[in-house]
Amino acid sequence: MKILNNTRVTGVLNTVASLLLFLMFTVCMLVVIGAGAGIYSRINKSYETTYGSAAAIRYVSNKIKASDSCEIIENGKGIVFENDNLMCIIYEGTDGIYEKNLPVGSEIITDGGNVVVENTGMTVSDNGDLYEISVNCSGDNIKMFVRKG
């Protein structure tokens, strides 16, 4: 009887120990998955804000350098570039930064353009011989100065 009881207890202990080991393994895997998911989420967010902002600011600055003349509109929320017979309007819209191309002399309306960079805000201001471009993407603000002419 005693031997039977011991065998039963041993069997139960074995099962419990196996389950505990399995549980420890599961917990470790969940911790690794959680850590990995957190790191991936941070990398993704950082990538979107940094490269979204950098792409937007470079795009606008290159446009300023390549254009014959620039005019700031909408209290800094838009800028008009003129090159030969083409007029390009870059402005901040609801979904990001928009771009619209029109013939020279057309009415300047900040509507109906194509999205260039999503989820990004833009402000352009005049600082004497320089333009100040400020881009905001998901709370990350980047500022850049571009020489006029």
């Binding site: 031997i3 039977l4 065998t7 039963r8 041993t10 069997g11 074995n14």
Partner: peptide, 10 residues
């Protein structure tokens, strides 16, 4: 028999 069965399970 029961003891042998227990050992096999072990």
């Amino acid at each position: 028999l029961k003891i042998l069965k227990g050992k096999a399970e072990l």
